[in-house]
Design a protein around this nucleic acid. Structure first.
Length: 778
DNA sequence: TCAACTCACACGTTTGAACCGG
DNA sequence: ACCGGTTCAAACGTGTGAGTTG
């Protein structure tokens, strides 16, 4: 039976609540929309329920590490300004995310999630050879998470092979029903990987780790803007082999084909236009002869490279078309990329499907870190995000070396994630290590009865999250969540970066939504309040949402419209929060949702996010898009310290701002609906329910009872308390949550199968997607 | 007019069923 | 009947370029 336990650790965090970008709306528009990376990452983590029975957890958590195997490849792209094509049907990422995990408990099961968050609130345009912010970001799209097909799998499994998320697809189709990750074109994004402990099929929780690799930032496009990127893609992606010099789809070949086509067409026309009987028309013509020759060449089985050129033999640069002087990115390449070019000869570095092959050694590696290193001088240790990946330094920006380009201003703000990088030890090194490794501890879903009263964890907000990107000591379970089990398998996160934890806590509180939250004292809000508070966000109706209703410290911010208010009752159901799911992921999207979902009202939940803006403001360099200085009382985010975390922390330090975001969303929500806020807690079905993996890739929809109320207010009364085990419901026409299992998945226990959407015949061939678009749709 | 987007296209890779032999 | 290897075709992934959209 499904239960809240499913994703205990995942909770709606403040982050997502507010993280909606308003381009045109007044108040929101001016607020910094995106939280600092660290903060974001932490927010993802829901307050983990303490897992009492697992002593080893703590140790292991502290050691959990993730490496980006193809970091060198990513850095190559990053140095130029990574672009990712997005299409309506969905496009895979290239390079793909190839990871190595270590430090996991071999015996425990983990679920790996991938989500992609906007780096800032700007829209970009490729101008003057570089990317420049040209305006505000589009309204945030439904948040979706890609669940690694192998999930859940044991720590041994994850650690024994290269983990690849190449199945994940990106789309710009806001109505996408395939479960692909929806992104806006010409926006900058940052992928994140989350490792969530699934103690068993029934329960998620115990530990959560989020990893962010700055070099994996990218700008979405519908067509490549930078020739450099095109070159890199062609030379690195096996699927694009045909476009290489030696390929049959190369420029030469295409030209030849074109000629051929024209010739044929011409001949045909001639034939048509002429008297069919006039054979003279068919006689060889000068043009035709020429074309034919071209054709002959083209048709040659293999067009030997006239020049004898072989990519393998020549440095990458050679393969590049010499027409990029103007391209800033190119200029940069010239200055730094010699190594890269050489490495490029290696060919595909990120081969799809490589995932299957365990422990694949990446060619990229062979490409030579040295090369990379040289190419990424900027990527220094602690530099702010990016040396490599970020613009200012070298990444996206206008590259210096081109004489004329120098004037080009870094299209991308120099410092995007200062904190992130700085905090990440790895960054300092060459590394592939995540800029931010955040560890949150989830509390195992304790039986409802067990819930202990939550307590504010965080000590002073000031406590530096410091650079510890490693696991943070888990907060005292008792303090954290009402659900906190008596036994603590997972140590509490250290106070240092607790913001995330608290955030999680708050999220967790959401979980409890239906569930009787510990007495008023125990209310989750109380617990989390200190940590993740979005002061700016003011709960509209604290009373209505007792749990979250802690008054926000900062009342300055205009009260965000309450979700309930904005949302039609029938629509209310569309948004759901998953406790177990990272905050930003907690939203469920329904295919049915009209595009209009972007409607401001719908975004309300995100307002909280905006509240966070202040922290972000500092980190983001002014772009064409002006970021209003935050009027908020909260101190600007400070990069050096614990990243966003600390900053958020500070903000949150305000007393009781439990999850402001939550409160915000929730405040209007009727108490009856439980914690239901704009993000009613939703649980994912328990794994036990799952059937053995099927050969096919069925679409699975998980419906939690808690969702029903939202769908239909009238049903709210029927909602079982959180304690009540979730029930399975036939798939809605609109499926809030979709889990697709990859047939290839090694899962012994498939995520899928809770429900199949009989209505939808299309299977999801690529892995599992957790559709959590939160946007209420109207 | 133009930037952004969509679509069909050709090529290459991947995948899995079918087949074969041991 | 089982296993492993090979072959083959379909599905899929990719960038391109023409056409469309706003």
């Amino acid at each position: 039976m499904l239960s809240m336990d499913m994703y205990p650790s995942l909770a709606l965090g403040p982050q997502r609540i507010g993280d909606c970008f308003y381009r045109d709306r007044e108040p929101p528009a001016h607020m910094p929309l995106f939280p600092p990376a660290c903060e974001v990452a932490q927010r993802i983590l829901a307050p983990p329920p303490a897992v009492p029975n697992e002593p080893t957890t703590k140790t292991q958590k502290d050691e959990v590490k993730m490496e980006l195997e193809n970091a060198s490849l990513w850095k190559q792209f990053s140095s130029v300004g990574t672009e990712m094509i997005i299409t309506k049907k969905g496009r895979r990422m290239f390079p793909g995310l190839r990871l190595k995990l270590s430090g996991l408990n071999p015996a425990l099961r983990y679920i790996l999630l991938l989500d992609i968050i906007p780096v800032d609130n700007s829209r970009y345009r490729f101008q003057g050879g570089g990317w420049q912010a040209v305006g505000g970001a589009e309204a945030r799209l439904p948040d979706r998470v890609f669940i690694h097909p192998d999930s859940p799998a044991t720590g041994a499994h994850w650690q024994s092979r290269t983990i690849s998320f190449h199945y994940a697809k990106l789309t710009n189709n806001t109505l996408d029903s395939q479960g692909h990750i929806i992104l806006h074109s010409l926006h900058r994004y940052q992928p994140r990987i989350h490792v969530i402990e699934a103690r068993d099929v029934l329960r998620w929780g115990g530990g959560q780790h989020s990893f962010v690799f700055p070099e994996t930032q990218f700008i979405t496009v519908t067509a490549y803007q930078n020739n450099r990127i095109t070159e890199l893609k062609i030379n690195s992606n096996p699927f694009a082999k045909g476009f290489r010099e030696e390929g049959m789809n190369s420029k030469k070949q295409r030209d030849a084909r074109q000629k051929r086509k024209i010739t044929v067409l011409t001949e045909t026309l001639d034939i048509v236009n002429c008297d069919p009987c006039d054979s003279t028309q068919l006689l060889p013509q000068p043009e035709g002869s020429t074309d034919l020759q071209a054709l002959a060449l083209a048709s040659l089985p293999q067009l030997p490279n006239p020049c004898g050129y072989r990519p393998e033999d020549a440095p990458y640069q050679d393969t590049l078309v010499p027409e990029q002087p103007l391209d800033l990115g190119q200029a940069f390449m010239h200055s730094n990329q010699m190594p890269v070019s050489i490495s490029m000869t290696g060919g595909m570095q990120d081969t799809p499907g490589s995932e299957v092959a365990n422990s694949i050694i990446e060619r990229s590696d062979t490409m030579g870190d040295p090369a990379y290193t040289s190419s990424f001088p900027a990527a220094p240790a602690n530099s702010s995000f990016p040396s490599a990946s970020l613009p200012q330094s070298s990444s996206f920006p206008s590259l210096p070396n081109s004489s004329n380009t120098t004037d080009v201003q870094p299209s991308i703000p120099p410092i995007d994630y200062p904190a992130t990088l700085s905090s990440s030890p790895t960054l300092s090194s060459t590394s592939s290590s995540p800029s931010l490794q955040q560890t949150s501890f989830t509390f195992p879903t304790p039986p409802p009865s067990n819930s202990s009263s939550p307590q504010p964890l965080l000590p002073s907000s000031s406590s530096p999250c410091s650079n510890t990107y490693h696991t943070i000591p888990p907060p005292n379970p008792e303090l954290i969540s009402p659900h906190t089990p008596t036994d603590t398998a997972f140590p509490q996160p250290s106070s240092s970066c607790q913001s995330g934890l608290q955030d999680q806590m708050s999220a967790h509180s959401l979980l409890s939504q239906g569930e009787p939250i510990a007495g008023g004292n125990n209310s989750p809000t109380d617990q989390t309040s200190a940590v993740f508070i979005y002061p700016n966000v003011l709960p509209a109706n604290p009373d209505s949402a007792p749990v979250h209703a802690q008054p926000l410290p900062n009342q300055n911010q205009p009260p965000a419209p309450t979700l309930p208010y904005s949302m039609p009752t029938h629509c209310a159901s569309t948004s759901f929060s998953f406790h177990s799911v990272p905050p930003h992921m907690q939203n469920l999207s329904f295919p049915n949702v009209p595009p209009s979902s972007a409607h401001p009202a719908l975004h309300l939940p995100n307002l909280s996010h905006q509240a966070q803006a202040p922290a972000l403001a500092a980190p983001f360099p002014p772009s064409s898009f002006t970021h209003p200085s935050s009027t908020l009382p909260h101190p600007p985010f400070q990069p050096s310290s614990c990243l966003a975390v600390s900053s958020s922390f500070q903000q949150s330090s305000a007393p009781s701002m439990p999850q402001a975001a939550h409160s915000q969303n929730l405040h209007n929500a009727p108490a009856a609906s439980s914690t239901s806020s704009s993000y009613p807690s939703v649980e994912i079905g328990a794994f036990p329910q799952f059937n053995p993996p099927a050969p096919y890739r069925p679409e699975m929809v998980l419906h939690h009872p808690s969702l029903l109320p939202q769908l239909d207010p009238s049903l709210s009364s029927c909602l079982p308390s959180s304690a009540a085990p979730p029930t399975l419901y036939p798939a809605f026409s609109s499926y809030p949550l979709r889990l697709c299992q990859d047939p290839h998945s090694s899962l012994s226990i498939p995520l899928r199968h809770l429900y199949r959407q009989h209505q939808h015949g299309h299977a999801h061939p690529q892995g599992a997607y957790l559709d959590m678009s939160a946007r209420a749709v109207f």
